[in-house]
Every structure is written in structure tokens, then in C-alpha cells.
Simulated scan of single mutants.
Amino acid sequence: MEMLEQITPDTITGPLVSQLSGWVEAGIAALPRVGFAILVLLVTWFVSWGLKSLIRRIGHKTYLRRNLIDVLRLLVGTALWLTGSLIALTIVFPTITPGRALTTLGLGSVAIGFAFKDTFENFLAGILILLREPFQIDDHVECDGAEGQVEAITIRDTHIRQTDGQLVVVPNAQLFHNAVTVRTDKAFRRTAIMVGVAYGEDVDNARGVIADAVRDVDMVRDDVRDIQVFAKSFGASSIDFEVTWWTGSAPVDIRASRDKVVAAIKRALDDAEIEIPFPYRTLTVNGPLPVRAVSDAAE
């Protein structure tokens, strides 16, 4: 009972009020430091904005790659904000020295790195892709099943628009670790088809007819490299020719030129009366087959 009588509202609220008063006084005393820290952050923002704008203008004047300009602006902005944040932190909390802050930041970075390993891997891969620039915007690429036109390259991922209109967002780490085929790295690339003529036809004559037909197609760039027609193999019903030519590197150029080449070769072979054979089948029977005559009346 005596202990209960000693517990009064004053014994509870007194220390609490005293503690709150101490916090308020400490907050009021820290207001100048907080204000100065905010000023440092504002200056950091202004300097970061100015330097990034300067990098963009200089990059445009010196014709630097757009991806390289973006990387430089990102690195400069990150470095300035890290420095400004450390300065502001040491101003608000004077007991925290830059060395302690960097140590704490390093330990925290290790923990965050393990938690977001894939995210940081994509981030670093994105920076390396932007710096090396193995492919550019509007290039047609293929990597690990994703194929299409590159629409955007960000720090984390790359946007690829497939030929059927679907958008594929590919993590940069996938593009960095796997082989990437850049189909539009050059303005022209080679394509090929197979053409078969009957065994009874003259091979040299057929080769000449096919070559002349391909050269007459307007989408075939024989000024880049001449077309090639080679007798490749003995097929089941025909002598097979491999026909190769150069055309635009975009997928639509490949499809369009193949359409015109096939039509031109078919037309030329028909005009020269060179047979394009259907598949033949020869049936061999081990024993004699019975033959029975059927009269018209029986029918």
C-alpha cells in the first residue's frame, strides 16, 4: 500500500515533461545547424544541376554519344550528392566525422549490396553498356530469345520492340553476360535461299539464268558485293543451288528482298524452260503384282 501511495501523477509526468523539454531545447539549439545543412543541400542541388547542364551542352557541341553524356551526368550528379549529403550530415550531427560516416556508409553498402545484388548488377552492366555502346538506339538485336529493335537503353534495363509489336524489357545483366547479335551493325548484310533444278537440266546454264535474275532485282546490292550462286548438293529430286546476295540489314529489307528474288528466279527459270521439279518417289515391290483386266461391262 505504501508503494502505491508513493506513485502519483507527478512522479510519472515529471520526468516525461523534463525529457520532452530537453528534446525541445536540443531541437531549438540545432535549428541553425539544420538550416545550414539545408542550405548545403540546396547548393549541392544547384551545383549538380549546373554541372549536368554544362556537360550536356559540351557533349552536344563536341558530338559525344548521347549514352556517354547520360553516363557522365549520372556519375557527376551521384558524386556531388554523396559529398553534399555527407557534409550536411556532419553539420547536423557534429559528433559524426566524415570518416565515421564513410565507415558506416561502407558497412551499410555491404548489407544493401547483398540484399539488392541483382539490381546493382544490372546498374553496373547498364553503365558499361552505355560506355562501350555495343549497340545503339534503333539497332535490331537478338539476345537469348529476345529479338527486335532497341527503343531505349536505361541504367537498369533495355527496351526491345519485337517485330510483332510486343515490348520486351531485358535486364542489362543479361545483355552484358550473353552473346548479343547486332543485325544492323552494318548497313548491309547477306541473305541466302536454296533453289533446285531438275537433274536433266544443264547446271552451268541454270546457274547463269539464276544469277542474271537475281542481279536484276532492285533491292539486291551487287554494288556492295557480287551475288554468289553455287551448286551445293544432290537433292532427292534436284540439283540444289545456294544463292546469296547482299541487301539492307533491317529485317524488313531481308524479307522484302527475299520475296522479290524468289519471284524473279521462278519467272526466269520458267522463261528459260528450266524445270523446277516436284519431289519424286520411286516404289520398289519385292514380288510380282497381279494385274487384272476389267471390262467396260463390269464397270
Rank of each mutant, 00 (worst) to 15 (best):
R100M: 12
G77H: 02
I127P: 01
D185Y: 12
G35K: 09
D222M: 07
G208R: 13
D253G: 03
R132P: 01
A26P: 00
K61Q: 13
R66V: 10
T13G: 07
N205K: 15
P15V: 02
L128R: 12
D216F: 05
A256G: 02
V285Y: 13
R258L: 10
E275G: 03
L42M: 15
N178L: 13
S18D: 06
D259H: 14
A268P: 03
G59F: 04
V47M: 02
P94Q: 11
R189S: 13
R189P: 01
P288L: 07
V92F: 03
V220E: 05
W245V: 01
L16I: 07
T191S: 11
H140V: 06
D240L: 15
T8N: 07
V150E: 01
I127M: 12
A293P: 04
V229N: 05
L102S: 11
E273A: 11
L167K: 14
A264R: 15
I193A: 05
E242I: 08
M1Y: 09
I239M: 12
G22Y: 00
I254F: 02
A187T: 15
F135T: 01
L124E: 04
C143N: 05
I55H: 01
R156P: 00
T119N: 06
H60Y: 08
W23T: 00
L42T: 05
H159Y: 11
L89A: 15
A297K: 14
V92T: 10
T158P: 02
R57H: 07
E25T: 14
I274G: 03
V110T: 10
R255Y: 00
T154P: 02
V220N: 06
A213N: 04
A173H: 07
E242C: 07
G27F: 13
P9G: 09
G22M: 01
L269S: 08
V110K: 03
P171H: 09
T62L: 09
E201L: 02
D218A: 14
I55T: 01
N172R: 12
V150T: 03
K232S: 13
L20I: 02
R57G: 03
L102E: 06
W245F: 14
A297D: 11
G50W: 13
R221M: 02
I210R: 10
R56Y: 09
T8Y: 11
G248T: 04
I127C: 07
G99T: 10
I210N: 09
A26W: 01
G108I: 12
P251G: 00
D223V: 08
W23P: 00
V261N: 05
T163I: 06
I274Y: 06
A187Y: 04
R56W: 05
A125L: 02
V182D: 05
D70K: 08
W245T: 02
G113L: 12
K186F: 15
Q228C: 05
G108F: 04
I112C: 10
K52H: 09
T163P: 00
D164W: 07
A298M: 10
G208S: 14
P171I: 10
I265L: 06
T11R: 09
R183D: 00
T154L: 08
L51W: 06
D139M: 04
A192R: 09
F123C: 05
P98D: 08
K260Y: 00
D185L: 10
T62Q: 13
E5M: 13
A37L: 06
V170F: 13
E147H: 03
P98E: 07
T95A: 15
D185W: 08
A125V: 02
T78C: 12
F135A: 08
D139E: 09
V150W: 01
